[in-house]
Design a binder for these strands. Structure first.
Lengths: 119, 119
DNA sequence: TTATATATATCGGATACCCAATATTCCTAT
DNA sequence: ATAGGAATATTGGGTATCCGATATATATAA
């Protein structure tokens, strides 16, 4: 089926559960640009590397090329990231503008979701 | 203009900056259902109360009725929340199913955004 | 050189998020 | 009873997030 989103999640007993995206509650879309900026701020990466890192964090399959490349293109057009070819790959890193934008977005994110993280 | 999203953010100098949603970086949409479940898990609330709480957290205007009510309707149809009329308002609270879904979603959220929050 | 594998890029389509505007319901005050 | 206000609800439209499929480019291996 097309567009189906499935997660593999480990429950308390260590069994893997197969559930609709976001544990059936909400699909946890969104904030892709934010997540990309955050990850690139820690380490410049190329597209597939980024997709792999996001997959690990989300516990999902890698984002399809139709998701990751348009997202990178958008951030580049906004002037938040720059690309540098490195052999077969294109390594992305934050610009100063991207750093500033990330900082603002982070502040907002933390305020919005305050209390979600266990102390 | 329609659909325009603007935030008011205070910068380091305490001046208020007017920026496109999410600090110009990414619009921070998404996860509305998740945020609603989280807030309701702390305290049952009615629609406008919820919208007010979200506005404070995001530093934005209150979500429009066209956003908050369909979101609540969806969560209700999924069986995650129940409503109880209280005079003029309808108070929403989590069901057991909603609690479970929130728990799973929280786990995923924390894993996805690990490192965003300053320790 | 040619084949293969990987990374990058684009396209069409589906769904979720979100808004402003409008409509409806319900309580309360007059 | 009725007028006003607040909460709730729906509608139409715009954008972002996603997917799978397909196409292109590049490096490496045969």
């Amino acid at each position: 089926m097309r567009g189906e989103r499935v997660d593999i999640v480990r429950n308390r007993e260590g069994e893997s559960e197969r559930v609709r995206g976001g544990g059936d509650c909400c699909d946890m879309r969104g904030m892709l640009g934010f997540l990309i900026l955050f990850l690139l701020s820690k380490k410049p990466m190329h597209g597939q590397e980024l997709a792999g890192e996001i997959a690990i964090r989300k516990g999902e399959k890698k984002l399809s090329p139709g998701t990751i490349y348009p997202a990178l293109k958008g951030l580049k057009e906004l002037g938040f990231i720059v690309e540098e070819r490195d052999g077969k790959t294109i390594v992305y890193s934050l610009t100063d503008k991207g750093e500033k934008a990330l900082k603002l977005a982070k502040r907002k994110f933390i305020k919005t979701f305050f209390g979600i993280f266990p102390e």
